[in-house]
């Protein structure tokens, strides 16, 4: 009997404690800086090194590059860049290997749509997703020549 009364006491005390729930859809949730949300992609920085495609554990990234239109510059520029968010697990490996921080994480996480097709995001959409970009990204930046072609953003 005593244990039950103690329990009743605990629940009564908790009744007047401040509430811990968030008013989420009305008030946006603030995520810490390191939060792994939807990627932001900057086509101007990309050097088409293909590392993100190779490291992706779920093969959700696909990209194609083309020769740099400027005949004086070497290397390639990005033509298409798609991330399939149906299978992306937001594991952070692509941003980890990207040497130029072309693909970085943002704090945005709202991905729900009415159609699965809408989860296939192209480079324009990813470029437009430019809010709340994470400040620290690549772990071991590899010194590469500054990407050529296009203006740095």
């Amino acid at each position: 009997m005593l244990g039950l009364i103690k329990g009743l006491n605990v629940t009564l005390k908790n009744m007047v404690k401040p509430k811990v729930t968030y008013n989420y859809p009305q008030e946006p949730l603030e995520m810490p800086d390191r939060f792994r949300g939807i990627q932001y992609f900057d086509p101007d920085k990309c050097i088409v090194c293909n590392q993100c495609v190779r490291v992706c554990p779920t093969d959700c990234i696909s990209l194609t590059g083309k020769k740099n239109p400027d005949p004086n510059q070497k290397g390639k520029v990005i033509e298409t860049y798609n991330i399939n968010f149906e299978i992306c697990i937001l594991c952070d490996l692509c941003t980890e290997v990207c040497p130029t921080e072309a693909v970085v994480m943002t704090n945005n996480f709202e991905l729900s749509t009415y159609s699965r097709d809408e989860l296939f995001k192209n480079s324009e959409w990813l470029f437009a997703n430019d809010e709340n970009i994470r400040s620290e990204n690549t772990l071991n930046p590899i010194p590469v020549k500054k990407p050529t072609g296009g203006t740095p953003s």
Binding site: M1, L2, G3, L4, K6, G7, N9, V10, T11
Partner: peptide
């Protein structure tokens, strides 16, 4: 401590 008060001594739980 609160969990022990709420659960551990609860006769029904025991």
């Amino acid at each position: 401590k609160e969990y022990h008060q709420l659960v551990t001594g609860n006769e029904i739980f025991i």
